[in-house]
């Protein structure tokens, strides 16, 4: 019988550390399966941001660098320039990438560094207990917006794909989600495309995963998927923003 599905070999048979129902692990699994398909597991370096992404090193069996909070794009830029034969990618949350590390993200993108960036947008700072992130939706309650996110006080959700799309250098920018099988297929295709851009030496590639945080959203895993569909996706439209 033909085997059509198995655990990606890049994932250790250990507990991954993410909360039940968290789509962080779905993104990680896709990345590992694409690296396997491209035969890159032995020649890639993952740069993890600080946040829930720091769970990755316990489950992902690839060379990795734990980066200071927000700095993965700077770390990855250096590694890639020193070791161009290595496929270098970052894995970052929204606090990490879009708040404390915004300068590093923008500048690596603007330099067109030949790295791939995976961005997990769960609309809050998951690891530290669900505080407001730049990506928090309007009116959304978080542990630091107990009365909801209001424009006058907190401004508006930040759209990283759209922001990066204003730059000249990036070569691939896409937003995906893993809420259902059809979307997982599209997400996997985007991960593949992003790595292909790096392999082709085209420069900065970026994939945003519109994700969930059942624990801090106070929703069951199933409810959190519904929340993504009904609330997150209207704010963060899916699709390819750039592919050249």
């Amino acid at each position: 019988m033909e085997k059509i599905y198995s655990r990606p070999i890049g994932l250790k048979k250990s507990i991954n550390g993410y909360c039940p129902g968290c789509l962080h692990s779905a993104a990680g699994k896709l990345i590992m399966s694409v690296l396997e398909e491209f035969d890159l597991l032995e020649r890639c370096t993952q740069v993890d941001g600080v946040g829930c992404s720091a769970n990755n090193h316990t489950s992902m069996d690839v060379d990795s660098i734990g980066s200071p909070h927000g700095r993965p794009c700077a770390v990855a830029s250096a590694v890639k320039r020193i070791s161009p034969e290595t496929v270098v990618y970052t894995y970052q949350g929204d606090g990490d990438l879009a708040s404390i590390g915004l300068a590093e993200t923008m500048m690596a993108a603007n330099r067109g560094d030949n790295i791939t960036v995976f961005f997990i947008n769960n609309a809050n700072y998951g690891m530290t207990g669900g505080q407001m992130a730049p990506t928090t939706l309007m009116d959304m309650k978080t542990s630091t917006t107990p009365y909801g996110r209001h424009a006058q006080e907190h401004g508006y959700p930040m759209h990283m794909c759209e922001v990066l799309n204003a730059l000249t250098a990036p070569s691939y920018i896409a937003r995906v989600t893993c809420i259902d099988a059809a979307n997982v297929r599209k997400a996997r295709a985007a991960v593949k495309e992003a790595f292909q851009h790096q392999l082709d030496g085209k420069g900065f590639s970026f994939v945003e995963f519109v994700s969930n945080c059942p624990t801090n959203w106070g929703l069951s895993p199933i409810e959190s998927l519904k929340f993504i569909k009904e609330k997150m996706l209207p704010e963060y439209p899916l699709g390819e923003f750039r592919n050249r």
Partner: peptide
């Protein structure tokens, strides 16, 4: 590599050190 700040430059150095 010119960093966008000293923080970024140090992070680049951290990445370089890791190689």
């Amino acid at each position: 590599l010119q960093g966008e700040s000293e923080t970024a430059s140090a992070a680049m150095l951290y990445g370089a050190g890791a190689t």
